[in-house]
Measured scan of single mutants.
Amino acid sequence: DTFTFTLDGIEVRLHGASEELIKTIEELLKRDIRWEELEKWIREWEK
């Protein structure tokens, strides 16, 4: 599955994202998160 969203005018596609990761990103997007914050968060998630 591919999860697609737009952040700061950039279309982002995550391939093979888990349901948990998708739900977490959706929550972060509701908080009007900035790209830099999401990028940092995703790097931490990957560890």
Rank of each mutant, 00 (worst) to 15 (best):
D1W: 08
D1F: 15
D1H: 15
T2L: 09
T2D: 13
T2F: 08
T2K: 04
T2W: 11
T2N: 07
F3H: 02
F3Q: 00
T4H: 07
T4I: 13
T4F: 07
T4G: 05
F5E: 00
T6N: 08
T6V: 15
T6L: 11
T6M: 11
L7H: 08
L7S: 03
L7N: 01
L7A: 04
L7G: 01
L7Y: 10
L7C: 08
D8Y: 05
D8G: 06
D8I: 02
D8F: 08
D8H: 04
D8S: 03
D8N: 06
D8C: 06
G9N: 04
G9Q: 03
G9I: 03
G9K: 01
G9L: 04
G9E: 04
G9T: 02
I10L: 06
I10M: 09
I10P: 00
I10Q: 09
I10T: 05
I10D: 02
E11Y: 05
E11R: 02
E11S: 05
E11C: 09
E11P: 02
E11F: 05
V12C: 08
V12L: 06
V12M: 06
V12P: 00
V12R: 03
V12Q: 01
R13A: 13
R13T: 15
R13M: 14
R13V: 15
R13W: 12
R13C: 15
R13I: 15
L14G: 01
L14D: 00
L14M: 10
L14I: 15
L14A: 01
H15W: 12
H15D: 12
H15I: 15
H15N: 11
H15C: 10
H15M: 10
H15P: 09
H15V: 13
G16A: 07
G16L: 07
G16N: 14
G16M: 07
A17K: 04
A17E: 02
S18L: 03
S18I: 03
S18Y: 03
S18D: 09
E19I: 14
E19A: 14
E19N: 12
E20W: 14
E20H: 10
E20P: 06
E20I: 10
E20N: 09
E20A: 13
L21H: 05
L21G: 02
L21P: 00
L21W: 07
L21K: 03
L21E: 07
I22W: 03
I22V: 10
I22C: 04
I22D: 00
K23F: 10
K23C: 05
K23I: 08
K23R: 14
K23Y: 08
K23L: 11
K23D: 06
T24P: 01
T24G: 15
T24I: 12
I25M: 03
I25Q: 00
I25E: 00
I25C: 03
I25G: 00
I25L: 08
I25P: 00
I25F: 03
I25A: 01
E26I: 14
E26K: 15
E26Q: 14
E26H: 11
E27L: 13
E27A: 12
E27W: 12
L28H: 05
L28R: 04
L28G: 05
L28Y: 07
L29R: 03
L29H: 01
L29C: 02
L29P: 00
L29T: 02
K30C: 05
K30T: 11
K30S: 11
K30N: 09
R31P: 02
R31G: 13
R31V: 07
R31M: 11
D32Q: 10
D32L: 07
D32K: 07
D32H: 10
D32N: 12
D32C: 09
I33N: 03
I33E: 02
I33L: 07
I33P: 09
I33W: 07
R34P: 05
R34K: 13
R34H: 10
W35K: 04
W35A: 04
W35R: 04
W35L: 10
W35F: 14
W35P: 03
E36I: 13
E36S: 13
E36P: 14
E36A: 13
E36L: 11
E37G: 04
E37A: 09
E37N: 06
E37R: 04
E37T: 09
L38A: 03
L38W: 15
L38N: 00
L38Q: 00
E39C: 14
E39T: 09
E39N: 09
E39I: 15
E39S: 11
E39G: 06
E39Q: 14
K40R: 12
K40S: 10
K40N: 08
W41Y: 14
I42N: 00
I42D: 00
R43L: 10
R43S: 09
E44Q: 11
E44S: 11
E44D: 11
E44V: 07
E44R: 05
W45E: 03
W45P: 01
W45G: 03
W45F: 10
E46S: 10
E46H: 14
E46Q: 14
E46M: 15
E46P: 08
E46L: 15
E46D: 12
K47H: 14
K47E: 11
K47W: 12
K47R: 13
K47Q: 13
